[in-house]
Lab assay of single mutants.
Amino acid sequence: KVMEIKLIKGPKGLGFSIAGGVGNQHIPGDNSIYVTKIIEGGAAHKDGRLQIGDKILAVNSVGLEDVMHEDAVAALKNTYDVVYLKVAKP
Rank of each mutant, 00 (worst) to 15 (best):
G42L: 09
K37T: 12
A72C: 09
K77W: 07
G21F: 02
H45I: 06
A44E: 01
L14M: 15
G41D: 12
T36S: 10
Y34W: 05
I33V: 08
D47A: 04
K9L: 10
G41P: 04
L64I: 15
I27P: 05
G15F: 00
K46T: 13
A72D: 01
P28N: 14
V22Y: 06
S32A: 08
A72T: 03
I18F: 08
G42D: 04
I39C: 11
D47P: 00
T36C: 14
L85I: 14
K6N: 11
I5F: 14
K89V: 08
S61K: 15
D47I: 02
K55G: 02
P28G: 07
G13K: 04
G10R: 05
D30Y: 04
L76Y: 03
I38F: 03
K6E: 06
L64Y: 08
T79G: 12
I52Q: 14
V2K: 06
H69T: 10
L14V: 07
N78T: 14
V67G: 06
E40H: 08
I56H: 00
V83N: 06
N24P: 04
A72G: 06
Y34N: 02
G53T: 03
E65G: 14
M68A: 14
A58C: 14
H45R: 09
I56L: 12
P90C: 08
H45V: 04
M3Y: 14
A75F: 10
H69I: 07
G21K: 02
E70Y: 11
I38G: 00
G13F: 03
L14K: 01
G63L: 12
H69Y: 10
G23R: 08
A19K: 09
G41E: 09
D54Q: 07
I8D: 08
G53N: 09
H69E: 15
E4P: 04
L64V: 13
L76N: 01
A43C: 10
E70M: 13
G15P: 01
I38Y: 00
S61V: 05
P28C: 08
V83P: 01
H45Y: 14
G23T: 09
R49I: 11
G21N: 03
N24H: 15
Q51W: 06
D47L: 02
T36F: 04
V35M: 02
E4A: 06
A58P: 00
G20R: 03
K77S: 14
G15Q: 02
G23Y: 05
G15C: 02
L85G: 00
K86G: 04
V35F: 02
V35L: 05
V2Y: 15
I52L: 12
T36K: 11
H26R: 12
D66H: 12
L64E: 02
K46G: 10
S17V: 12
